[in-house]
Amino acid sequence: MYCTVCVVHYMSNGTHNGTEVFENLRLELRRGCLTLAVLIQLRSERYGYTLRKALADDGLEIDEGTLYPLLRRLESQGLLVSQWREEDKRNKRFYRLSPMGSEILEQLMSEWQSINASLGKILQEA
């Protein structure tokens, strides 16, 4: 009985740790991809909510607490420009890529393609 309890406890603990590890790794993996996805989406001007919707429609859900600080960071790095404008009687902040952002996006895209190709090769070999 005692052994069974221990084994069950160990297994549940192990599963819990496994989930946590997976979640951390998933977030790490997503972080860079999200930045790239946001930059790609902002080749055309959007405001926060429509950007979130566009990303979610393509399968990349992103919550408010993640998106807005990310947009701020990218803007402070000079990759985005923003502007408050009234639309439908409400003030909205519109974002788009800056000229420097477009250049960096090109470089990031080629880096992404290179990583993707390498991973595909590694997966085929494995």
């Binding site: 926060g48 909510y49 919707k53 807005y68 409400r90 003030n91």
Partner: peptide, 20 residues
């Protein structure tokens, strides 16, 4: 001021969600 901007954006996002 920066945080006020973030709050305004969050508010706008929530109102857009409600509208949708």
């Amino acid at each position: 001021q920066r945080q006020e901007g973030l709050i305004a954006e969050l508010g706008e996002d929530l109102r857009s969600q409600i509208e949708d």
